[in-house]
Simulated scan of single mutants.
Amino acid sequence: MGTFRLARRLRNERANDELSDGQFSVLGGLYTHGPHTLSGLAERDHVSAPSMNRTVNCLEEEGYLTRITDPRDKRRVTIELTDAGTAVVKETVKKRDAWLHHQLRALDPADRETLAKAADLMRRLATQ
């Protein structure tokens, strides 16, 4: 349960408080994995294509992403981050890192060492 609470607390650190978790997930995914089709985004986030289309429409209206039509196949559209989308992702990551850094510095060295060992164990579990 503590892991979920920590994740929820970190998600609260955003550059734009009006973005939902789902919207930020799309922006973060495009930042990390590059341009995607709408169906690719929907599959990655485990949502329906119509649901992803609503999310993408909203983010496009806010100027965070854009749709690029394939010049060879006009039916194929790729979704990419704009400079504003990249900036909101970078600023959010910066805010989350700063919050976490501040919280970790407040711990005593023994607790930080315990967390480092636990993080290593969790990484190993995640790769199995």
Rank of each mutant, 00 (worst) to 15 (best):
M1F: 03
M1C: 08
G2K: 03
T3I: 13
T3E: 11
F4H: 06
R5L: 13
L6M: 07
A7H: 04
R9T: 15
L10A: 10
R14Y: 02
R14F: 02
A15Q: 09
N16E: 14
N16Y: 00
N16P: 00
E18P: 00
D21G: 10
G22W: 02
G22E: 09
F24H: 02
F24I: 08
S25G: 15
S25K: 04
L27E: 04
L27N: 03
L30F: 03
T32S: 12
G34V: 08
P35W: 00
T37C: 05
T37G: 14
L38H: 00
G40H: 01
A42K: 02
R44S: 08
H46S: 12
M52E: 11
N53G: 11
N53Y: 10
R54Q: 11
R54E: 10
T55E: 07
V56S: 05
V56G: 02
C58A: 12
E60Y: 00
E61N: 13
E62Y: 01
G63S: 07
T66N: 05
D70A: 07
P71S: 10
P71R: 09
P71N: 05
R72A: 09
R72V: 10
R72M: 09
D73Y: 10
K74P: 13
K74L: 14
R76K: 15
V77E: 11
I79A: 01
I79R: 00
D83K: 06
A84T: 09
A87C: 04
A87D: 15
V89P: 04
K90C: 07
K90I: 11
V93R: 08
V93G: 01
K95P: 01
K95M: 08
R96N: 04
A98T: 15
A98C: 01
A98D: 12
H101N: 13
H102R: 15
Q103L: 11
L104C: 05
L104A: 08
A106T: 03
D108I: 01
P109D: 14
A110M: 06
D111S: 12
D111I: 10
T114M: 13
A116E: 10
A116N: 07
A118K: 06
A118F: 11
D120R: 13
D120V: 12
D120H: 11
D120M: 12
L121Y: 09
M122R: 13
M122E: 15
L125C: 08
T127G: 11
T127W: 05
Q128G: 14
